[in-house]
């Protein structure tokens, strides 16, 4: 039991973290039903879409939604509590290796101890394991992902000489942003073949306005304006703006505005800075 309060922050063991309050999520299409069905069938899910479009929020929302009806006895403490679906999120980066996910030996005063990595923990407790930006991780992680995502649902732990059969609730969810990955860092075909893909894009103007209004607490008019701005900026994709402005940033701008920051300034700090002007080499190129 590692749960505790230190300072003002609440600390959880990673496998015990669950979403407690219902996250706000506005379904755009059938993604909620799809995910529910997939989870029921334990089909791994790939969330595909640009950053800040709501992928993570969606996973949290689904974890909350799926966890709620289950009342279980906590395996470790024996306490009866409303069991929520644990959610383990791992942000992948280019140095993330398989052992970072599975676990490793650590030294302490008594010698070496094996410590489970987040994936192992998720497999053991039957959590949803969300690997964010999975293509960023090193290739050796695929070794782990593959047996977990087919009928076997196994996690081999080489160093311990163990194979763990995933607990019933376990599901692997990965996210993938096709926008900014180079050809080098693309999802392998064999990996792709193991997931159903739910596509995310920035919501249409009206819905986005609703989201902004809810999240930022700004006026309805301001949220419509922001959504409209977002739409225009996204028209400029690939002009130094990568994928346009995310809903997340629009929400930030809305929050600033709700606190009295003038609209123009709020948009400058939240949105305009994104556009790194394309390098103007002194080749003045027109007559």
């Amino acid at each position: 039991m590692t749960q505790g309060i230190e300072g003002s922050a609440t600390i959880y063991a990673s496998e015990e973290y669950a979403v407690h309050d219902e996250p706000y999520y506005l379904p755009i299409a059938d993604e909620v039903e799809l995910f529910e069905t997939a989870y029921a069938q334990r089909i791994p899910v790939l969330l595909k879409g640009p950053t800040g479009a709501g992928k993570t929020r969606f996973v949290e929302y689904m974890a909350y939604k799926l966890g709620r009806p289950m009342m279980k006895v906590s395996s470790k403490t024996g306490q009866e509590a409303e069991h929520r679906m644990p959610l383990i999120t791992v942000a992948c980066h280019e140095d993330l290796t398989a052992s970072d996910l599975v676990g490793r030996y650590l030294l302490d005063t008594d010698g070496t101890h094996w410590t489970d990595g987040p994936l192992t923990r998720a497999v053991k407790v039957g959590a949803i394991c969300y690997l964010d930006e999975v293509v960023e991780a090193r290739k050796d992680t695929t070794v782990l992902i593959h047996p977990l995502t087919d009928y076997r649902r196994l996690l081999p732990i080489e160093k311990l000489g163990q194979v763990i059969e995933a607990a019933d609730g376990f599901l692997l969810v990965i996210s993938y942003n096709p926008g900014y990955q180079s050809a080098l860092k693309d999802l392998k075909h064999s990996t792709r073949q193991r997931f159903i893909a739910i596509e995310f894009d920035y919501p249409p103007r009206e819905q986005e306005a609703e989201i902004i209004a809810h999240e930022a607490g700004c006026s309805r008019e301001a949220s419509i304006d922001l959504a409209r701005l977002g739409e225009k900026v996204r028209n400029l994709k690939e002009h130094g703006l990568g994928e346009g402005v995310s809903t997340r940033l629009l929400v930030y701008a809305g929050k600033l505005m709700a606190q009295g920051v003038p609209a123009r300034r709020a948009c400058q700090v939240a949105i305009t800075w994104l556009s790194r002007t394309t390098r103007k080499y002194n080749a003045a190129s027109r007559k």
């Binding site: 739409e231 225009k232 900026v233 028209n235 400029l236 002009h239």
Partner: peptide, 9 residues
């Protein structure tokens, strides 16, 4: 051009 592109998409 960018301005018009943004407006019109």
């Amino acid at each position: 051009r960018l301005y018009c592109k943004a407006l019109t998409g």
